[in-house]
Design a binder for these strands. Structure first.
Lengths: 391, 391
DNA sequence: CTAAGTTTGTTTAATGAATTTACAAACTTT
DNA sequence: AAAGTTTGTAAATTCATTAAACAAACTTAG
């Protein structure tokens, strides 16, 4: 049912607002918070003191006077607890331990051969266990685990379908929650990546962005007005299966001419195998391009073109003001960026484009883990203390 | 700045919840509202009495007892005020006067030849003036005007670009507001249509739907979790310009192979001209198809195919659970539905499709006006309703 | 037909979070 | 040193919700 209003809600809202400012505008004084929120100084004072009480904020001493008594500056206490973010990849697992600000303090990587679900989930749990072991002591301990997966999930944290892993219907959240008895959030790796970029990457100051993850397949995470947008059933952005050629080759999804048949890493390697007469991986293709092999540069150029076609569709369909390209293929930025820009300039509607920015991810392969950890932190603040939204 | 919490907000929230139930579950008793909202009987009683005070609800007598005192049933007072909804078309204007429940009480239609912006806006104002003249007396009078336009608008109600009208940068909201001194909302006709369908049409029980308006161009209105979704810049869903053939014919938008080049009314008529050797309008094509002309049926069949290709893109990209096809081409439902369904079954991902429904609009050409009027009503309740005390 | 139980809706007192007003402490400026 | 500013806390007030009590209106069991 819908949330009704009462004093509890009022306090929750205001505490959330106060904490938000301490988190994002720190160091900041009580008086300044009162000024920008419109709350009275008394209210802010009381809420801040409760936050200090619960170790989420602390005073760090007096600041500069502006003509009167010196303000007592407040800081968010990022080390009151720690979160774990995991990127469950098709061939490897990347897990990080972050503090409550999202800063990475420990990292753990492991390859897997994807032999069986049990084995991979076992490795996943082992990674988490290792990071828990390494976590510093803190007031709240490990407050949550976020996992980004290469597939679609439902709202209960079941991994419904992960084609590139070959998994179906794995109750991942339940399994991990039972193991560690810590709140777990599962979401698509592109959604996590979008949040990661929004929070820590190029999209920091943007309320509307699309993160396109170009790996073996293509996925997208869409953030509108600061919030992750999921489709009707909780998983959206199967954007790799938007057709860019209605009579193109058949895709395993049933449709024809899907974008991901043209612009994914898989598509690139396939084309390379055909045109170069031998199979190569992305790393060697990059080396060959660097060495000045024209056939390979042409491959990347062709890929950029198709990438651009799909990105134009995103622009026209979703109308973001920032597009961030990530995933494994982001390493080829050098070869992709310029031709991509050309396609966009030629093909996108003038109105949406005006204020549009396109960039490759600056977080390397960490977009997803950072976003996943961010999910865990958000859940902690939503359930325990206060709800966190806005911008 | 963000809204902080105080007692005012609490009351506003709860009053809004109570009114919502009176609007949608009426006739309903105070006790029942308390039961389903979780508010106490005392609170509900107090809020209901204020709503009655301000003429938005009234008592209609006792209902059936369920083993105790008979409940006093409440009704929403739909005639406390009236709203005007307008569909500004490329060749005509349709305007309606509705009560606060959205029920149409007066209608006004007029053709226009789109000679100049001034002339058409003049006709628009005349239509509104006529409906205001015809409006019954009421407590609040005309509470707002909503206008659906065939183009993209910004949040200030400026019509930025309407290609099929040939208009650019018309401050429509301002012009109409100045004329009548009544709050005005401007939005895209497809957005309005989506809201109309959600409120009064096939999409009543659906939280996630896409309304595709297939007219001279193609537009879409997207509703996610009951709310209209607009892109970053306040106008989204230029879905007609998603490319379904990356190397297709050039579109005026700059891209190639846009959907609307294949599946709009304009595309159909163009194809008809070429294949039949003479130009015809939609109405005559429908007559010819009814008369059994195989060349014409083939035209519709071909159109359905392209329609399907784009709809599959919508399904994969937005993941709605209801798609409603409206606009002028909805009249061809008979010829389009079956082949369209075939394409969808063949081409869409299994997961999204499972719970998907596709239907043609049942509101005829009224989806947009009803949605537009609904915008006006929503604006009234969002701004005025709660602060109607102590006038 | 009466007594007991139920349901509805109002009244009254209590709760608690924010606001308003006042004020002390700590600065800067003149 | 006096005057003015700024910060943060304290006390009193406000007000919407809740909780508890209750009267009115109705049904049902015996």
């Amino acid at each position: 049912m819908k949330q009704t209003g009462d004093l509890n809600l009022v306090k929750k809202i205001n505490k959330s607002i106060v904490l938000h400012h301490i988190r994002s505008d720190s160091p900041i004084s009580r008086a300044r918070i009162a000024e920008i929120t419109g709350l009275t100084k008394a209210t802010v004072s009381s809420l801040v003191n409760e936050l200090i009480e619960s170790s989420l904020a602390h005073e760090i001493g007096a600041g500069e006077s502006s003509g009167g008594r010196k303000p007592m500056m407040l800081l968010f206490n990022g080390t009151a607890g720690y979160a774990i973010g995991v990127d469950l990849g098709v061939h490897d697992i990347l897990a990080v331990l972050t503090d409550l600000t999202g800063k990475v303090v420990e990292e753990y990587r492991v390859q897997h051969d994807n032999a069986s679900v049990e084995q991979v989930v076992g490795l996943l749990k082992a990674s988490i266990r290792e990071l828990i072991r390494r976590a510093p002591d803190s007031v709240y301990g490990i407050i949550g685990i976020g996992i980004g997966v290469p597939g679609i999930c439902d709202e209960n944290g079941n991994l419904l379908f992960a084609p590139n892993l070959g998994w179906e219907n794995v109750p991942l959240q339940q399994q991990v929650e039972e193991e560690f008895d810590i709140p777990v959030v599962i979401d698509n790796e592109a959604n996590a990546g979008a949040v990661g970029e929004k929070q820590f990457g190029a999209g920091k100051d943007t309320a509307n962005l699309v993160y396109v993850s170009i790996g073996i397949g293509i996925g997208a995470g869409i953030i509108i007005k600061g919030e992750l947008y999921r489709g009707a059933t909780g998983f959206s952005g199967e954007i790799g299966h938007i057709s860019i050629q209605h009579d193109g080759p058949k895709c395993r999804c049933g449709s024809l001419g899907c974008w991901e048949l043209y612009a994914s890493e898989h598509a690139l390697l396939e084309k390379a195998r055909i045109e170069l007469g031998e199979s190569a991986d992305l790393e060697s293709l990059l080396r060959m391009a660097d060495a000045g092999e024209p056939a390979v540069s042409r491959l990347f150029e062709r890929l950029s073109y198709y990438l651009g076609v799909g990105v134009v569709n995103i622009i026209n369909g979703y109308n973001p003001d920032f597009i961030i390209l990530g995933g494994r293929l982001a390493r080829a930025e050098k070869w992709l960026m310029q031709p991509l820009q050309t396609v966009l300039e030629k093909r996108s509607l003038p109105h949406p484009r005006e204020q549009l920015n396109v960039e490759f991810s600056s977080l390397g392969d960490r977009s997803t883990v950072l976003g996943a950890s961010s999910f865990a932190i958000a859940k902690f603040f939503a359930s325990t203390r206060v709800s966190v939204e806005h911008n």
